[in-house]
Structure formats: structure tokens, C-alpha cells
Amino acid sequence: MSALLSNAILASLFLFSLAMVLTLVRLFKGPSAQDRVLALDYLYILAMLMMLALGIRYASDTYFEAALLIALFGFVGSFALAKFLLRGEVIE
């Protein structure tokens, strides 16, 4: 891997982490509960994109499976939280 690509990957990983920090600020600040759920959902998406970038960095397929798992758990988690906010109960 040339210096060009590895530096570009480093830069994009840095930008992803910066985005995560900003989202964390919203997560802690978020005036309402649904703001926090939205921020958490965005954190999951960012983590998933980061996994794909890491997969390219280490030229490995395994990170793809991690990304799929993060996407699925993120979906289930935010769905359950949003459902909880709607009615106050997860199971009806």
C-alpha cells in the first residue's frame, strides 16, 4: 500500500472520529430523549462506516462482518428505544 492511500485512510478515519465526538456532544447535550436516540443511531452508522474503512486499511474481509453486525444491532437498538419512547413499553 502506497503512502497516498494509507494517508488518505488515516485522514478519513480521523474525520470519522471527529464526527463521532461531535455526535457524542449531541448525545450528552440533547435536550429531549429522542435527540439522544437519534445521536445514538448516528453513532452506530459512523462506527459501521469506520469498520468498512478499517477493512480497506488492513485488506481484510473480517471487518465487513463486524460492520454488518453493528448495522443490525444498531437498528434493533434504536428501534427498541424509539418504540419505548412512543409508548413507554417495549413489549405490548
Binding site: 485522514a11 478515519l13 474525520l15 470519522f16 471527529l18 464526527a19 461531535l22 455526535t23 449531541r26
Partner: peptide, 21 residues
């Protein structure tokens, strides 16, 4: 090409976070 696509994607992710904030 891969470098440009990765940078573009992370820029959009960052913009999304800025907007969220």
C-alpha cells in the same frame, strides 16, 4: 479512486455530525 471515495464519505459523515450539532 479509493482514497477520494473514502475522503468524500468521511467528509459527508462529518457534515452530518456538524448538522446534528
Amino acid at each position: 479512486l479509493v482514497a477520494i471515495l473514502l475522503l468524500l464519505s468521511s467528509l459527508f459523515a462529518l457534515l452530518g455530525a456538524i448538522g446534528l450539532l
